[in-house]
Simulated scan of single mutants.
Amino acid sequence: MTDGEMVTRRVAAIDIGTVSSRLSLAEVAAGRVLAARKHTEITDLGQGVDATGRFDEAAVARVVEACRTFTAEARAFGAEGVSTTLTSAARDAANAEILLGQLRDLGLVPQVIPGEVEARLTFFGVAHDFPDERIAVADSGGGSTEIVVGSYCERGHELELDRLQSLDIGCRRVTDRFLAGDPPAGADILAAGRWARAQFEAYWEGQPTRPDRLVAVGGTVTTLVAMTHELVPYDSSFVHLRTLSALEVERAIDRMRKLTAAQIAALPGIQPKRAPVMLAGAVVIRELMRAGGYMELTVSENSLLAGAAATIGEVLAGERPTVGWTPELSR
């Protein structure tokens, strides 16, 4: 198919994570997202899941209400296909069906995806900005962090992945497991860092040749940029492909470590609902960078949503999905 014959399609991707529920309304063609707008709600689905192994009914209600709004927006957008993915919290919760059933009642087709698929979708979404460059991509969420090393050949629409892994390290999980105090004790912050670092070091030790560039996605790193530059209101075009240094992450930790969640929520650049997990998220990013030997990373606004949207476009065009996974679509 030539560029002149490319068909542009409107699609919608919903992703239900441990901390946030997100929607992308995208125009896609030839495996690329041409334009997109996003809607994010902090729904905190994973609150308490690490300890109990179960979803809280109030958290489920928050997610369902957000998805009710998302389905209306997708319909108004004229989306030809809608994918609905769920990640770490849904993988962990023994009673995930109470959420899945209500999502089906909204007309959605929810899929709880394994960490490997989550990692592939994220890499596919990010790597379009770095064609033919070998990079490391880290998606640090609420319940897990996916790390992928590889490259994307734009001409052949092929992913070449050296190594990918999903680690059970995320800002909600670390908060619930280590940082119960408000503010948490200094010893607990140190323990959280040691716990995360040991797992990240094990990953990097298995990757003898590390890429020069580390790209990170997720609400923690985008918020760290917003904090650093005191972005009010938030400006995604400023954040996208912005460099975040290890020193800036450390300064953010120092700024938050003795504050309550309410005080963190008042800081410029912070979404108030994200405040309770921001310190833990920053600690996770610091340990990721330390273990990999990175003094800076590149922040991307693209993520699993971009990869999912591009994949929906491939499926609607009758093409083989680049990521090796096929979404089940509602229409």
Rank of each mutant, 00 (worst) to 15 (best):
D129A: 13
R120T: 03
A89W: 09
G81A: 13
E80I: 00
E65R: 12
A74P: 08
G78T: 01
S83M: 12
G101K: 10
N95V: 02
F124Q: 12
Q102H: 03
A90L: 12
Q102E: 15
A93E: 08
E118S: 06
V112C: 04
I98R: 15
V63S: 05
A74W: 04
P114N: 11
F70H: 09
L100N: 08
S83W: 11
E116S: 14
G107R: 05
L121V: 02
E73Y: 00
D129F: 09
A127P: 13
A127V: 04
P131S: 07
L106M: 04
P114F: 04
E118V: 03
D129L: 00
E73P: 01
D105E: 15
V82M: 15
L86V: 03
A127H: 09
L99Y: 04
V112L: 04
V126P: 13
G107M: 01
N95A: 06
V117C: 06
A79G: 05
A93S: 03
P110C: 05
A119Y: 13
D105Y: 02
R120N: 10
R91F: 11
Q102S: 06
F77R: 07
E65T: 01
E65Q: 11
G125Q: 10
P114T: 01
R68Q: 10
L108K: 05
E116R: 11
Q111Y: 02
G107P: 10
E80N: 03
S83L: 11
V64N: 13
A127T: 00
D92W: 05
L103Q: 09
A76Q: 14
E118L: 06
R120A: 15
T87C: 10
T87P: 13
T71N: 07
V109A: 13
V112I: 14
A96M: 06
